[in-house]
Design a protein around this nucleic acid. Structure first.
Lengths: 346, 346
DNA sequence: GTGAAAGCGCTAACAA
DNA sequence: TTGTTAGCGCTTTCAC
């Protein structure tokens, strides 16, 4: 059933039917009723492609995900964030188009998305400190919004970020208050903007107490379980091992716990583990996770919000570039010892 | 740059340019060269919407994900699978469109996808035993492929599944061979087809040795860390607790480990934990995971394969409904005790 | 081997 | 308030 057929059934012109369906004011109410009714009865839905072609809007938003190095897509953060964004899109009638790209081919993909008219805007994930994507997208004239920030970018752009710096400052202070002095930082890859900001927060806290950071205690790589495990094994084997771990993701913290276990250390007694992660659904199911003391934020909600911001930008491309900084919340769990912990002898 | 502009630059008709670009044979080679060259130079990409409208093909494939109850999208399996499928789509020039739906609204969404011509086919995730979606999609005449199977469905359809039954039979046999007699099964939600098949395999193995299954030892729910933890806490508190756990997902197994830890039990010594999960990227990063003994399969590869099958079906809707059953691989890690473990006294 | 023209299903001037 | 008409950018007969 298409517009032509529907209008013939109704004995009206396509124009009138179209106007009735799209809520234009110049249609008589009775006519509109008739049209809407028939549309429902015949299960009519307008062909998106035809509509797009006529309006120039694709009513779709692209998420471009690099595959090879970062494994971004399988990152639970990405999943939760995307789920949130998707809900917003659905409410506004947008489709979500996900493209995966081998690293390096990104420019080509954005260019194509634009040229082919596949999407009306794009959401950018996991920006690096000197991320080049934004300039490319900006130059293409494609509306975009960023989950995170790009430190090296002076131009205004639409972003939403969690306050990583203050979160890690707070977390580190928390551990310092407990009496810890050797705190390991198990962080994401150095080029990632979030990792840089987190390290800054950690260093801020140490500096404020005049504690010299020990480079040996600061590791960074892609945040997998394996990385957490290996980091902890390595750090716990030091002559002066850390008494606390500040870990940039829950899944890596789980790896840290595995290492602790293998070393015969009990969390909350022999070792403190504190994590920053978003509030991920695959770990909980409505329940609490008191595994670690944690800095939490809702990444799903972040997805919803940023999608709203992007849609607003698409509607008004010359409007202001909105930004939003979310503060993380501290949740104290039982794995962080309440008292200064003895340094384990080598 | 669109076709008209490009053809004007070349002094050719749109027709010829179109033919040259799309590899039609009746174009002189020299002309084709010129056209392809110009297309590259001017960064020409055909407008997808216009092309779709003209051809009737959308060159997009839909993944419909229920949101409310199952949290499917944030399931790491889904993420890895989708990443794999997406790679195949990219190779074949397809876009991937993801829609989230509140449970129950699925029929409406499929109907819309079809009526609006948004996609050429759909991939169905996480089927339940009596899943109604397939009949709906079938009736709509939308090509589809299923990740998993639907036990209650006699009609042929295109699916790819891992052999859950034999995997769990093998896993249970493995634990039985070690001398375990009280083996807990921590499984996915009962309505899920995969959970049913896994339980069957588990029961098969017990029955073959004339061991009566203990209903107390069989739990099922959505596979989160929290569920694994709670299950294990509950089971370990039994008068006769299990000596081994067979867990349906790695993340839940991590919860089981947490519970074991809290109970002062060491994996591989006091307790065996065996898991079935796909080979998930967020846990590893190229490395091994010696956490549990596991039945493994590559879900990313599964995504790639099933996407191929679907694309083939779209190209030839009246062709055979291909199916593919993958066998899981047993990987023995150090957490499964090599000898019968003493039953912990209550 | 190349081009003219119709049409995919819809929207949006402009007319009535 | 409704209808006529001309596109949106591409493919695809059909004619040359």
């Amino acid at each position: 059933m298409n517009l032509k057929e529907l209008s013939e059934k109704l004995g009206l012109s396509q124009t009138t039917v179209s106007r009735a369906l799209n809520g234009y004011p110049e249609v008589r109410e009775a006519t509109r009723e008739r049209v809407l009714d028939a549309a429902r009865r015949y299960n009519y839905s307008p062909n998106t492609r035809a509509k797009s072609l006529a309006t120039g809007q694709s009513m779709a938003i692209g998420h471009v995900v690099p595959t090879s190095t970062t494994h971004e897509m399988v990152n639970p953060i990405f999943a939760d964030f995307t789920a949130g964004a998707s809900q917003t899109y659905a409410r506004h009638g947008y489709e979500m188009v996900i493209s995966t790209v081998p690293d390096g081919d990104e420019e080509k993909v954005y260019r194509k998305l634009k040229a082919r008219g596949t999407v009306d805007g794009v959401l950018v994930h996991a920006p690096a400190m000197d991320d080049q994507r934004l300039s490319i997208i900006e130059d293409l004239g494609l509306p975009y919004a960023v989950h995170g920030r790009v430190s090296d970018r002076p131009e205004p752009y639409c972003w939403l970020d969690v306050n990583n710096r203050s979160a890690f400052r707070t977390a580190t202070d928390f551990l310092l208050d407990l009496g810890h002095r050797r705190i390991a930082l198990v962080n994401g890859r150095e080029q990632m903007d979030f990792a840089y900001r987190r390290r800054s927060g950690y260093l801020d806290a140490l500096e404020a107490r005049r504690i010299a950071p020990d480079p040996q205690l600061m590791l960074s790589d892609e945040m997998t379980e394996t990385f957490g495990y290996r980091s902890a094994m390595q750090l716990l084997a030091l002559p002066r091992p850390p008494t606390a771990f500040l870990v940039s993701s829950m899944i890596s913290a789980i790896g840290v716990r595995r290492a602790a276990e293998e070393n015969g250390l009990r969390l909350g007694t022999d070792l403190s583990v504190m994590t920053f992660d978003d509030d991920l659904s695959y770990l909980r199911n409505g329940g609490d996770i008191p595994i670690f003391t944690a800095m939490h934020s809702s990444v799903r909600e972040a997805g919803r919000l940023l999608a709203e911001m992007l849609i607003e930008l698409i509607a008004n491309p010359d409007g202001p570039r909105r930004t939003l900084l979310l503060e993380a919340e501290l949740k104290v769990g039982r794995s962080t010892g309440p008292v200064p912990l003895a340094v384990r002898s080598a």
